[in-house]
Amino acid sequence: MQLATTKFTKNDLAKYPFLKETTEYVKKLDLKIEDLANPEFAKILERAEERVEEAILYALVSRKLRNEDIETLSFPTATMLAVATENSFIKKRYALAEAKQAYNDMKLEPKEKILAIAQNFKWKLTVNNDAEIPYEFTLHFTDYLRNTTHLREKKWKLVNRLLSKGNVYLTRNEAARLLSEEVRKHIEKRLEVKELPKLPQKIMETAEKIKKLSVEKIGKAEMEGFPKTIVQTAFPPCIQALYQAFSSGRHLSHVGRFALTSFLINIGMPSEKVIELFKNFSDYNERMTRYQVEHIAGERGSRTRYIPPKCETLKTHGVCTSPDELCKILHHPLAYYRRKVKTAKTDFQN
């Protein structure tokens, strides 16, 4: 038996301002961008600013549901502010904060409301009525995968779930958690604006204020580059094994070759040098090797430089063979390298 979906109340719309229903409600209020500069709407802009600030400071956005219309309207305004900052960190942080708050709210909702929110995102979520299976919901595995593949906890791996007839069983908390992932993606997408539209002076000023705050709070992003010299002792075990096999001319799988090549390129080895290494192979073909290495380095074709696959992918393809202690806490061969080079340096200085 499928529960009938409940209608959203005005309070819900304020609590979950990312819903389609909210957008429609806002449309009916017919508020224009220019209006926001007017003093009568000052409260909305004020609340919108607060939303983004809270996101930067606490990675959460409080709910102020006493005045529902202000709360509801402050959401699209806040997204506009985030867009106006043109700062990818602020945008990501804001989407995350709204999603986290939505999770806190959703997990306390009755099943019907969770179903209704899921329906808003076109999820195939249903209530589990089999009393012998201790889960409240089932979700089609395609919706499940779209929202879990980047989650690292082992319990989200599909192989560790109860999957039957295409459906993954979920507790209420888990359903709310995955819905919040959908919310995060949804808001991030709304914030993806290629070209900034012309916005009122007032909005731009507020955006500047927010940018300043984020610099104070987070500090200038430490975009740490890789060291110039290559430190072979800092290679993760998988790359070390590939490198050794490679230098002695042993056969490497396709994934193995890609992982090693992209790793070496990314830590700063010039492509000439990498091509040189390939000469050890019996099936060496200069033209082909050059083409492939330069492709990975982004010197040809699509001009994107490829990065090596993350640890999980390397595991799938059997490239990860003997992970060590450091591997347990990191998830990418480049992260491993960066960390190890750093600790090696401080060891040396001490």
């Binding site: 082992k154 192989v159 560790n160 999980e312 799938t316």
Partner: peptide, 23 residues
């Protein structure tokens, strides 16, 4: 389904990442 989702299906079928604790 993107490549990452397909990888998750591959892991399911080949039992990679399986942990008895979750069963």
């Amino acid at each position: 389904l993107d490549a990452v989702a397909r990888k998750e299906i591959v892991d399911y079928i080949s039992g990679l990442g399986f942990d008895a604790v979750f069963h």
